[in-house]
Amino acid sequence: MALYSEKVMDHFRNPRNVGVIENADGVGEVGNAKCGDIMKIYLKIENGVIADAKFETFGCGSAIASSSMATELIKGKPVSEALTLTNKAVVEALDGLPAHKIHCSVLAEEAIKKALQDYYEKAGIAYDHTQFPDCESCGHCCGHEG
């Protein structure tokens, strides 16, 4: 289909890092079933480095591809670097997304930030709260459930 780039279709058809990490060091879930997409990211963190990342996604093709790409981009990276991942970087790595699908990349960025915030909380590491905007950059209706 011409709707998506080859890269998006590749990550949609063969998503990397699908699954769950038991006893993950950080878990982040964003999105809302009402709006049609939920992303959940699981992180394993060792010595300040993302040793493993997995995801589960309910959503469209670009939501699944964005989750796959975002987890690929942060695996093996220090937490400090993963925190700087932007939705723009996800879009670029996917060779672009259609305009009305950009929110999928925003969700991926937010899911990772939320998982990292959860890691800081769980590990009792002090952090700068302003680094974690609560969904404000998202033009989508991503109210959090529960």
Binding site: M1, M9, F12, R13, G36, D37, F58, G59, C60, G61, A63, I64
Partner: peptide
């Protein structure tokens, strides 16, 4: 229940 239609369509198209 539990899935989204667009990804279903894309995989059926495959």
């Amino acid at each position: 229940e539990g899935i989204e239609g667009e990804s279903l369509l894309l995989l059926l198209d495959d």
